[in-house]
Each structure stands twice: as C-alpha cells, then as structure tokens.
Amino acid sequence: MAVETHRQFRKDFDGSGLNRKTKDRITIIVFLLPAIILFTIFVIYPVFRSVYFSLFDWNGLGPATDFIGLENYQRILSDKIFQKAVVNNLMIAGLSLLVQLPLSLAIAIMVGKDFPGRGLFRTIFFLPYVLSEVITAIIWLGLFNPNPDRGFINAILVFLGFESRAFLGDPELVLFSIFIVLSWKYFGLHMLLFMAGLQNIPHEIEEAAVIDGANQAQLLTHITIPLLGSTIRTSAYLSVLGSLTQFTLIWVMTKGGPINASEVMSTYMYRYGFVRFWLGYGSAVAIVMLLIALIFSLIYRNLLQRRDYLAEV
C-alpha cells in the first residue's frame, strides 16, 4: 500500500511541483506554438479580415469606410452568374465522383496486378499530377486549339472525317473540356491512393474468396471495394473539395468564359476581387466559398468518415 501510494506520488509530482498532466499540456502547447502563430497570422487573421471587409463597399484604396452590412451577401446569393458558378462547381464535383474516381480505381487495380512494365505504367499515369496547373493548362490550350493545323485534338477529328470543334470557345463544350483536363491531371493522385489502399487488403481474404468459388467480378464487388471503403471516402472527399476550390487551371484556360460558361466560385471571386477591384464584394464571395466548403467538410466527416476514424483508434 505504502509503496503504491509513493509511486502514485512520484507519477503525479516529480519535484517541479506541477501536476504531470499540466506538464504534458505545457509541452504540447510549446510544441504547437510555432504552428499556431503561423496559422493565426496567415489563415485565421485573414479570414476575419475578409469577414470584416465583406461588410463594406470597398475598392481596396484607402480604409474601408462605406459600411453596407450584408448587402454584398444578398447580392451574391441573388446573382445569376454566381448561381451558375455554384452549379458548375457541383457539375465538376459530380463528374469527378462519377467518372474520375471509378476510372482511377480501375487503373489502380490494373497496374496493381503483376505484369511486365507495370512500374513504367504507374509512373506514366502519375506524371500529369506532377505538372503544375499552369503548365497543364497551357499544354491543353495547345491541344484544344480550334484550328486543325495547330490543335492536336482537332487535327485528329479532321483526320477521322469529323468537323473541328472550338472546345474552349463553345459555351456548351467548355465545361466538359475542362473536366477532361482536370481528370487527366488528377486521376494519377487517386490511382496512387487506391493502390495504397489495395495493398492493405490482406491477400488471404481474396484467396479464401477464390477458394469459395468467387469469380473476378464478385471478388471486386464483395471484397475489394468494401475493404477499400475508407480510401474511397478519402478520395471522394479530396476530389469534391478540389472541385469546389479549383481555380488556376480554369483561369488560365478560359478565365471562366466564354460568357461565364466555365465560371466557378473561385474565378468569380477573382473577377470581382482583383479584376474589377470590388474587394469588399470579393471578400464576401470568399466567405461564402469558405462556408460552403466548411459545411460540406463537417457533414461529410461526421456522416461518412466517422467510422473510419473510430476504426483506426
């Protein structure tokens, strides 16, 4: 008894007079401090400044004085072009989930198999992801060039006997054309995630299923995909969030045009904030974007990803 009490005492108070728990907390805080300071200066503070500016009619010159309350927000939510931008964002997100992820999974399963040169294929498929978005956009601007003498894709179309198309100049085609580029650029990342996920599936389970008489399709739908669940959920999360915040590629390729056909929330924000210099309004758009992404994140994490975290703990 006496010995145990003594141990307990040593555990709680090791001479400094501080409770051990308190000491741990101090250590944690000290180690977190640099990150917290940077995060506060570069993320938290600007967000609050944006909230502040979003309540003003302000063009960025001089101090913001023309307080207009929530008028900017009213205007954003009733602006048809912003609504169109949100729809376009959702279109890209939806297409990513329906096309890009299944494609990435299929390719991951293919290059995950043992065959000669699979390392080469993995590298090739991953390459587009390594390119910067501006470079990607410029490459595809060239490929999409409406003149068949200069644009590779139209050259092929003409060679096959079709008419050349203005992929980026046609309001009906432009969003899909951009989606193709986004998929080309990002499927490699998801492929990599899926490959990592596939490696975590124990070989024994697949073997057992095969012994029980499962064919390849059953193996895929009953073993592989269910066991990849957490990877798929992470992948879908990244994909949707990426779609909601996509900017560079679209700005370089089309600036949201023609006639707003490829406008997304971020290009809309940039147009008002830094082309038209309505910084107050642009700030309000940024806050709306932040809220949309935040609400999506919270709901998604709570509803779909909670299981993943519980399972890991």
């Binding site: 060039n145 003149n147 046609d170 089309t254 023609p258």
Partner: peptide, 12 residues
C-alpha cells in the same frame, strides 16, 4: 470571325 473566336486570346 475565325472558328473558336469566343475562346481565343489576343495572341490567337
């Protein structure tokens, strides 16, 4: 106008 003028730049 030339084909694809809605998406073209001044460079094009």
């Amino acid at each position: 106008f030339q084909d694809g003028y809605l998406g073209a730049t001044w460079g094009d």
